[in-house]
């Protein structure tokens, strides 16, 4: 008959009956504390110790934090209701906000354009040779190591105060970030498409153009959109040092203690960032499904 009788053996019962045999045949699997496990425990304990030490060394004080929360509450009351003060000032603030968004947009776009060739040179599968890859990578690391705020200070002393310095600051700091993100995305692409182009007799550039870029461009576009969002926030900050945009008004209002204007500006920034966030997530979803 094709159908055998009901269960004859049970794995669990057989394993338990053979427990001594199994433990002698595979002693390593029954060790209470495998070496890898011990190393993991030590690393966790060390990280916790470092955290406690850092909190102590940096004088982390819950008492001071609690005391300060009262002050925070007072400011919050002073901020209500949000009010720009006058129509002229509202106009200036809106103009500053538009400038901030423009700085973020231009800076991100230029950074993405500059970063693409650098990323191709820095990615293992598209680079010219190992030396070029190494140099491209280190250059990107170096640029990325300096924050946008510091770049803003540098560019202000080169091209003067104003949004142009802001665009340059966002661009330089982002070239590093994009270069790294892009080259990692390029390295993560499917090798088989590029192999197909090579096998058909394609050159290095043709391989990149037909085997790599079509696969990776949607990913890069998504990353650029994401960074545009985060740059809208950073370009608020660089305005404070004089590189254009709404940051300048914000720091002025804080300095002159006009809290209702401060809250008006913060509210506007929040709304703008939320709007860009919404638009870019829609766009990224569209790219991901269409690409």
């Amino acid at each position: 008959m094709p159908h055998p009788a009901p269960p004859r053996q049970r794995l669990g019962a057989m394993a338990l009956a053979d427990l001594p045999g199994l433990t002698t045949r595979h002693p390593a699997q029954f060790r209470a504390m495998p070496p890898g496990r011990l190393a993991g425990l030590i690393a966790t304990a060390a990280a916790l110790g470092l955290l406690v030490f850092a909190l102590w060394r940096l004088e982390f004080s819950p008492a001071r934090l609690l005391g300060g929360i009262g002050a925070l509450g007072r400011f919050l009351v002073l901020m209500l209701p949000p009010d720009p003060g006058s129509w002229t000032r509202a106009g200036l603030i809106l103009h500053g906000l538009a400038e901030t968004v423009a700085i973020a947009f231009l800076g991100t776009l230029m950074a993405a354009i500059l970063a693409l060739p650098l990323a191709l040179l820095g990615a293992r599968n598209t680079t010219v040779n190992r030396l070029v890859q190494f140099l491209a990578r280190r250059f990107l690391d170096g640029v990325r190591g300096i924050d946008a705020l510091i770049w803003a200070l540098i560019w202000i002393s080169v091209v003067g105060l104003g949004p142009f310095a802001g665009v340059l600051a966002i661009m330089t700091s982002d070239v590093g970030t994009f270069g790294k993100m892009f080259s990692e995305a390029i390295e993560a692409t499917d090798r088989r498409a590029a192999e197909g182009i090579t096998a058909a007799g394609g050159s290095r550039l043709q391989r990149i153009r037909f085997g790599v870029l079509p696969e990776v461009l949607p990913v890069l576009a998504g990353q650029a959109l994401y960074l545009f969002e985060s740059n809208t926030r950073s370009s608020t900050i660089i305005g404070i040092v004089g590189a254009g945009g709404i940051g300048l008004y914000l720091s002025e209002m804080i300095r002159t203690l006009e809290w209702q204007s401060v809250s008006f500006i913060i509210l506007l920034i929040l709304m703008t960032v939320a709007l860009i966030d919404f638009l870019s997530s829609k766009l990224r979803a569209a790219i991901a499904s269409g690409g």
Binding site: G12, T23, R25, F30, R37
Partner: peptide, 26 residues
């Protein structure tokens, strides 16, 4: 926490032995 009992390990190793790959357990 991956704290498997001796019995559980024994059952797993018995299954691996059944399939002739107990030497690959680690």
């Amino acid at each position: 926490l991956k704290l498997w009992s001796v019995e559980e390990r024994a059952v797993a190793l018995a299954a691996l032995e059944r399939l002739d790959i107990a030497n690959l357990a680690a």
